[in-house]
């Protein structure tokens, strides 16, 4: 898997964890189950560290997509982009193991095959 794509996925996962922790309702659900959520600063530091490893080109595109759609990286399931449900051509699927970051031709989101 492309190392930049790996980073993009990790960044998106981490941003979601940060959002969940900052969301009062969600955070309360966790604390009521007995979990402590004291390390938000650690997560933010890790996020900055990950972002510095990103190629600026990918970073800017990721930011743009996140602002537009909420999620920049979307899974491809059953040959469909789970962002816009456009069909991902099989020619695309055959190159998924190439060392590239691929985009949906319809919506532009970054594609990930889980």
């Amino acid at each position: 898997m492309n190392q930049q794509l790996q980073l993009l996925v990790a960044i998106q996962d981490l941003e979601q964890m940060i959002r969940d922790t900052e969301d009062e309702t969600r955070a309360r659900e966790f604390t009521e189950m007995g979990f402590t959520l004291n390390g938000l600063d650690n997560l933010k530091k890790s996020l900055i560290e990950l972002e510095t490893q990103l190629d600026p080109r990918h970073r800017n595109y990721y930011r743009k997509l996140t602002q537009k759609f909420g999620h920049a990286v979307v899974p491809v399931i059953g040959n469909l982009c789970m962002g816009c449900f456009a069909n991902i051509p099989s020619s695309f699927v055959s190159v998924t193991h190439e060392n590239k970051v691929l985009h949906c031709e319809n919506c532009g989101r970054i594609l990930y095959w889980p």
Partner: peptide, 9 residues
């Protein structure tokens, strides 16, 4: 992801 979660608490 699991390591990050442990960093949170």
């Amino acid at each position: 992801m699991l390591q990050s979660r442990e960093q949170l608490g």
